[in-house]
Write a protein that binds this DNA or RNA. Structure first.
Lengths: 190, 190
DNA sequence: ATCGCGTGTCAACAGTTGTTGACTAGGCTG
DNA sequence: CAGCCTAGTCAACAACTGTTGACACGCGAT
């Protein structure tokens, strides 16, 4: 630790701005699809030049990969019996929950799933980080199919709420809606 | 009908190539998202110059709108009791059924839902052509919410099968899978 | 004082994209 | 034959993209 660093921290470390770029990229990819997010947008959010993004991450594809793979897999230690409630709370309290990043990452996947370059990364992430852990929790017949159906509900409601902005599913999410979702998940899990 | 037209039809009518362009555009938008489909791709499929596309449709946005709005709304005369079976047959026999275009259009919507310019058109189409007719069939409490949940299942499974290429939901779709889907829809409709 | 390294900027590249206006060839009608 | 309408081509535009190499500045160590 040098003198300049002790007195005041003006100049940022490469690791710091790298992390800032990663956060900014995550915000951007959360709101728009792979090709609609420009590296210049991300750089502007942080306040640096575009060239830095390519320098720190090599390529846009690699940046996206690191955004997608940032977090850990789906929580595997939730008991199968409480899964429905857990999934619904994941959806309705996406912002507050500590596991809220899962829904975020799913939304990122959803947004860029149709991109020629991003789709492969998305498929791998969904498979490894969501589908497999989910199928592991659900032991029994057709575990993979049931996991797929659960994910289908999760993705379907997410895409309707955030991407298509369908009113009835968005607003408030009152108790009635919550109960319906729990029933739906249980029908898929059974 | 002129002599030249009777003998042989060399030169195409504007309406014909326009229709060909529309078909080609539909195929393209079915496979990739709004910004990943280039007007030059569509023109090349038909064998004409790019300029014709802009000439006949005014803009790419308008072309996409006409692709999305090509077909009629969801079939409104299917009885509520048989809805689950109808929806599943729509999914599993998308190619053969005459109503198979519905699934296609949903896939087009899904693919381009995250595009800044296409998203508005997609939202409108989903709302007018799917969600409203569906809610009309489902009378009773929370008709709109139930319609939304049904659409969520439909979209979720579609996105997993065609965009994310999730194996267990894709292959064959045997009877077991079909039964699961029917049960899932009925849980959403109840 | 000077070297070198870390952090970042700048300008330019080559490749797309959608869109436009000028132009051309073919067939019908006067 | 002359004219005109139609269907289509061509070239160019301006805007944008990700990526790269050369350069600039500040700082610590020699």
């Amino acid at each position: 630790m040098t003198l300049g660093e002790i007195i005041e921290r003006k100049r940022k470390t490469a690791g710091e701005t790298r992390a800032e770029l990663l956060r900014a990229a995550r915000r951007r990819f959360l709101a728009e699809s792979y090709e609609n997010v420009g590296l210049r947008d991300i750089a502007r959010d942080v306040g640096v030049d575009v060239a830095l993004v390519s320098r720190y991450f090599g390529s846009k594809e690699e940046l996206f990969r690191q955004v997608l793979r940032k977090e850990q897999k789906l929580n595997a230690d939730v008991p199968a019996a409480a899964l429905s409630e857990y999934l619904v709370s994941l959806m309705t309290e996406a912002d507050r929950s500590s596991d809220g990043e899962h829904i975020e990452t799913m939304l990122i996947s959803l947004r860029s799933a149709s991109s020629p370059v991003a789709s492969r990364l998305v498929r791998e992430a969904i498979q490894d980080d969501v589908l497999e852990p989910l199928a592991a929790i659900l032991d029994g017949d057709d575990a993979e199919i049931r996991a797929g159906l659960v994910l289908a509900i999760l993705m379907g409601t997410t895409v309707l709420r955030t991407v298509m902005a369908v009113e009835p599913l968005c607003e408030g999410c009152p108790e009635a809606m919550r109960a319906r979702l729990v029933r739906l998940f249980e029908a898929a899990l059974r």
